[in-house]
Write a protein that binds this DNA or RNA. Structure first.
Lengths: 209, 209
DNA sequence: GCATAATACGAGCGATTACTCGTGTTTGTC
DNA sequence: GACAAACACGAGTAATCGCTCGTATTATGC
């Protein structure tokens, strides 16, 4: 006989799928506004317009919500990155950087909870696990992008460069998201400026190793 | 008659001063390891080797501990910055950057709680208030440094440049602190590389506005 | 030595929070 | 329409945490 499923996954009805969407949306807003710890599950339920009990029919605990949110972000990010992170041959470095930075910033603006899963240094262990796939995915994409831009880089230098690029973006996302619209575009431009200057400099010294 | 002091500050004995040091040290370690929210006041007390009641004879609440820690960091930072952030005339840009980055990294390694007050984007409001003076102080220093390095920058461009520099460092501090020693020096070098490339690029376009 | 203030203790209080459970309602299937 | 499964509710529970308070000990000034 087959091992009995501990949690026989219920067959979701359309109502249930809609509830899940509401819950994840409410959670994303709360995470983005107050951070993970300060967000209460009862608060998420209230914001989603349901009772605490209903929330726990779709998610086993608070971490599970963060995990589901991260998974969803990862899927949506894949779509965005498929367009904006590929490097067509013969395109200037600053255009590639601009495209990638733009898509990440837009994604953060459209998904307010994202930065809580991506740009935060000291998360509780449980949440770090939930956010890990998102970070790995981003790292791979940035790695491919940098490798395409600067083919002369050996693997070690490539790794270090990816860390610098990724964490530079992480560091600047909070002020960018918090800024007013005009200030935001200034900051985005300056982030692109910084990354471009760095990558050009890396490229200039890549061959002479 | 004078207004009665609500909290007549007790005259600290040598014992009391020593306790305060123990408490702040324990708090710094806990904040650095687990973050602010996950750190419990009873945990700080236990780590400091005292009872919860004793802790509250020196601090009115948890925020007060963070505030005192921030104040202490600010004083110690002033000493460090006085040496390493001043820009002697005729010194190369990359040397100034290297000195400043080195001092900030060393400070973080020596004071494990610092990054919880400096490099974290989504803190609770109460803690943001405690950390604000530290951030302002750093901002001023970086501003002075950049202004000395690139005198041609107008005020607006200067502000933006400072934000980029400061948040780039913020973003890279977590991986730098977490890295092993050899990886750490590589990352520090690369952070200096990035900042230098960016500032040189800013300097190159500063006159043509 | 004596009075006063500072330091020390730790059990426990009040508030908060993640999560449960008993019960009732809606939806899909035949 | 009948049955089961999915959905919904919200008061309640157990555990945690910041903080208090009554009491005991140690240091200081005279």
């Amino acid at each position: 006989m087959p091992v009995a499923a501990i949690n026989p996954a219920p067959k979701r009805q359309a109502r249930g799928e809609a509830r899940i969407d509401q819950i994840l949306l409410a959670a994303a807003k709360s995470f983005g506004e107050q951070g993970y710890e300060a967000t209460t599950t009862n608060g998420i339920a209230a914001r989603a317009g349901i009772s605490p009990g209903s929330l726990y029919q779709f998610f086993t605990n608070k971490d599970d919500i963060a995990h589901a949110l991260a998974t969803r972000y990862m899927e949506q990010l894949s779509d965005v990155q498929a367009e904006s992170f590929t490097v067509p041959e013969g395109v200037a470095l600053d255009q590639v950087v601009s495209s990638a930075v733009g898509s990440i910033v837009d994604f953060n603006l459209a998904h307010p909870g994202f930065k809580a899963l991506f740009a935060r240094p000291d998360m509780p262990e449980s949440m770090r696990a939930a956010a890990a796939p998102v970070n790995e995915r981003l790292q791979e994409r940035v790695r491919d992008m940098v490798a395409a831009l600067i083919p002369a880089l050996d693997d070690q230098r490539l790794d270090v460069t990816v860390v610098v690029v990724l964490h530079t973006v992480k560091g600047l996302l909070p002020p960018i998201v918090a800024a007013t619209e005009s200030m935001r575009s200034t900051l985005v431009g300056e982030l692109e400026h910084s990354l471009t200057a760095y990558l050009r400099s890396v490229a200039a010294t890549a061959g002479s190793a």
